[in-house]
Design a protein around this nucleic acid. Structure first.
Length: 417
RNA sequence: CGGGCUGUAGCGAAGUUGGCUAUCGCGUCUGGUUUGGGACCAGAAGAUCGUGGGUUCAAGUCCCACCAGCCCGACCA
């Protein structure tokens, strides 16, 4: 993409109001725009990032048998009354149509997916099933804050599993855990993301969160460094020692973190309300056992910005960067501009995702913008580099610069990426 | 939902005990000079001062209400 056609622009400053690091960098770089508290537009650069995050999650869900669907965001009151959450779920956005029929905007989808599967699942032969979606969720947070980390409208991947018995759920639960670790690995967050025991298991003692260390995180976790398992602050009073290695809890390390994923064993909490049962081998009715597994692409995007940045801007991991290469022309010379244009075309042809800064801006502006936007590889073509038919290559996360012959840059990048 | 702070041009800000035509920077437009770390000169456009009401000869400035944003806390299946 040529930068001159981007309708967004970077900004040198935004108001003192926006103290959240992720929102500040993402707004300044032209990735997102805030419409109102906790509600954001994804601009061209930001949409590329969020799509890549979603695709990583999608691939890992597909690998563990997930079937993707898309459920409605507009949901009728009746299903929420069935589970007694119409009045008990504070964060539910409620609205009504002109005839007075009441709806809620989907905050989570147990109420939709459970009756949905009930229409198709009748026998033990139909089980297990794994259904997921990536969708916009709405939650009327008492206080939206921290940019993309706690919004009133946000993206969520929610997977729901349906099993014949608890043992089968337990087995799949572990499979999802591994899939989540694969996701965090691909997002380059695996080294700072810990499985964390937390409260809220309706069907088991604990539920599990995936907590990513970040100094601006709103959660406090206690990490057992020996077995790399953490405990959410909300359960720390109930335990005396690590569940795994028995290390005393006084040895745990207190850390700030962002909850980037969570997995729950639901048991029959929802299947019971909807009368969702199946027939076993002996023609006996049995209750369906459920699990649910969430991960928020938009929160992940905010988390990555919180974690990967320096005083000049964002440093995107390659797996989710909006582009992999930022080509910058520093010259007004027509011949050089032609050379840059050709390089842009050639690299595009061999499948390299490239943003080409062809704008009529000064060197300083382009370099600062490039650092702010945070694309992994920066290529500079200038009179200086052209003298030796070369191009300067620098990685965003490094100070080293390398001169590569223009002819060889395609091969160089293919190898590096 | 409680407490605090804030709201002035597209963006960021200044505006004194109420006083004349509301100021500056960025950005934008025109002309010129520039190009390896957010250039320079000259000119120009751009504002119902969050909204509504009130006090006053006179309100961006004082008072009341409301709306919005941010922060702290509570909350966060």
């Amino acid at each position: 993409m040529k930068q001159s056609i981007l309708f967004t622009k970077t900004r040198k400053e935004i108001g003192n109001d926006e103290v959240s690091l992720n929102a500040s960098l993402l707004i300044r770089g032209g990735f997102i725009d805030k419409l109102t508290a906790g509600v954001y537009t994804y601009l061209p650069l930001g949409l590329r990032v969020i799509n890549k995050i979603q695709n990583i999650i999608r691939e890992e869900m597909d690998k563990i048998g997930g079937q993707e669907i898309l459920m409605p965001a507009l949901t009728p009151k009746e299903v929420w009354e069935k589970t007694k959450r119409w009045n008990n779920f504070d964060a539910l956005f409620k609205l009504s149509n002109i005839e007075g029929k009441e709806y809620a905007l989907g905050a989570t989808h147990e109420e939709i997916v459970t009756p949905l599967l009930k229409k198709y699942i009748f026998s033990y032969k139909d089980l297990p099933k794994y259904i997921y979606q990536i969708q916009t969720k709405f939650r009327n947070e008492a206080r939206a804050k921290s940019g993309l980390l706690r919004g009133r409208e946000f993206l969520m991947k929610d997977l729901y599993s349906f099993h014949a018995d608890a043992a089968d759920l337990d087995k799949y639960y572990e499979i999802v855990k591994l899939a989540y670790f694969n996701i965090f690995k691909r997002l380059k967050l695996d080294k700072i993301t810990y499985l964390t025991l937390s409260s809220g298991g309706a069907f088991s003692k604990y539920s599990h969160e995936f907590q990513t260390l970040a100094k601006n995180g709103e959660d406090t976790i206690y990490l057992c460094e020996k077995c790399k398992i953490a405990y959410n602050k909300e359960v720390i009073d109930e335990i005396t020692q690590c569940e795994g290695c028995k290390l005393g809890k006084d040895k745990f390390k207190e850390l700030k973190a962002i909850e980037t994923g969570n997995i729950f064993k639901l048991g029959t909490r929802f299947s019971a309300d909807f009368g969702f049962k199946y027939k076993d081998k002996n023609d006996k009715e049995q209750e369906i056992i459920m699990g649910c597994y969430g991960i928020g692409p938009s929160r992940i995007m905010g988390t990555i910005v919180e974690v990967f940045n320096d005083n000049k801007g964002i440093i995107w991991p390659e797996s989710i960067a909006p582009f992999l290469v930022h080509l910058i022309l520093i010259s007004k010379d027509n011949a050089l501009a032609k050379k840059a244009e050709k390089l842009y075309d050639d690299l595009t042809k061999i499948g390299i995702q490239i943003l080409y800064d062809d704008r009529d801006e000064t060197a300083g502006t382009k370099l600062n913008d490039s650092d702010l936007i945070g694309i992994p590889f920066r290529l500079i073509l200038s009179e200086k580099t052209a003298k030796t038919d070369s191009i300067e290559v620098k990685k965003r996360d490094s100070q080293k610069v390398e001169m590569i012959k223009i002819k060889k840059i395609g091969d160089y990048l293919k190898k590096a990426l």
